[in-house]
Nucleic acid binder design. Sequence first.
DNA 1: TTAGACAAGATAATCGATTTTTTAACTTAC
DNA 2: GTAAGTTAAAAAATCGATTATCTTGTCTAA
Lengths: 228, 228
Amino acid sequence: MNNSLPKAALPAGPVGTASSRVFDNLRKDLVGGRFVAGEKLAINALKERYQVGLSPLREALNKLAAYGLLIQENQRGFRVPKLSRDELDDIAQMRLEMEGMALERAIAHGDSHWEADLLAAAHRLKHADISLDKGEEWEHLHTQFHRTLVAPCGSVWLLRFIEQLHDQFDRYRRLGPKMPTIRQELDDQHHQLVELALLRDAKAARALLDDHIHKSYDVALKRYQEHV
Amino acid sequence: MNNSLPKAALPAGPVGTASSRVFDNLRKDLVGGRFVAGEKLAINALKERYQVGLSPLREALNKLAAYGLLIQENQRGFRVPKLSRDELDDIAQMRLEMEGMALERAIAHGDSHWEADLLAAAHRLKHADISLDKGEEWEHLHTQFHRTLVAPCGSVWLLRFIEQLHDQFDRYRRLGPKMPTIRQELDDQHHQLVELALLRDAKAARALLDDHIHKSYDVALKRYQEHV
DNA sequence: TTAGACAAGATAATCGATTTTTTAACTTAC
DNA sequence: GTAAGTTAAAAAATCGATTATCTTGTCTAA
């Protein structure tokens, strides 16, 4: 084979293992609410659905269980965790504490590179086509924005926990269909957050982020209550 | 087979799957410093060491990677995460924030059942034979004590994160051999923590816990620096 | 001398089949 | 009619072997 093209020129990129691919897809589907909470996973059906063999599938399921998106019970497989009001409250409360902390630190430490990334992320989010592929594109840019916002907080572990909490929170927020009304208000807050971050007004930024999380919580709670 | 003994009478208890057993053992060994940081794991050697087949072993490794006790690199297996001063600082800082928060909430919500558990845990810890099986017994009771201390904080996720941080912290703290001198001082603090918790003095308890973590941090840092 | 190509061996990932355990349906005794 | 016991089917866990990928050492050509 005399293909002299460098690998990077090909569109494919690093394909990754079957296990990592099914992990990504399953995670997306679990967070996006494409499984029923409490449901027991039929492994053979998943094999079909994700077009993988048993071994990589089980490895992905094990990782998701350790991550908290699945419950693993010895000798009786995997199930999707139930949803509860109490847990939603817990998750939202933890988001307030941890993202608030992270935002203050990010504002203290973030450099001009961060400012640029933040502006870019907010802009991309604003122009995302929400109607495209069930808003999957918007969801991704939204996650990316919040990730960027707290990125320079200086703590790898704090970022890790926040990511995990976001995934858990989104299991509630993404239960129902989109609500464009409240959505607009939340979108506006993203830009206000950028403004306050650039002004280095940690106090005001944190207050706004608190409000943002509270409003998101209201949406998530509504979805949950309608869903039950 | 006419064995009429109820299952519970047998000493074995729930044996669990091969995967869960090797997960527990590997976790203990990783936290206990029985692997070299940065080392690449030879899967075949682990198969020998833990007496399991490939599939359950790989499932355990995948879980540990999602949990943060291993690094998984596509197509090149698993390695033990490196240690660094920066990460130790991060972990200790996060412990201060999160355990402090949890302790205040536990003191606010814990009932008399909790008080009893706490006294019992502290007592067991005090009388643990530290010389036994490399102090493994003491380590277990120590973990148990700290777990009990914050147990009624009301947040499942906070407890989960704290547990994870403890495991990470212990990778540093347990690098070298035991230091009986400083150990005594830390042991005393455990009992003082119980006292303050029973008095419901959240402020003082948190201050003492901060100091406790700081002292533990000093130990861990020393170990780390001697170890490099 | 050294960068690149190649081949052989080692390791990681995956597959297909087997073993073990659970679940559910059915029976039988009280 | 209920509860304990039995068994067949389903599902989970594990094993042994295969396939794919990486690593290392050697060689060649500039």
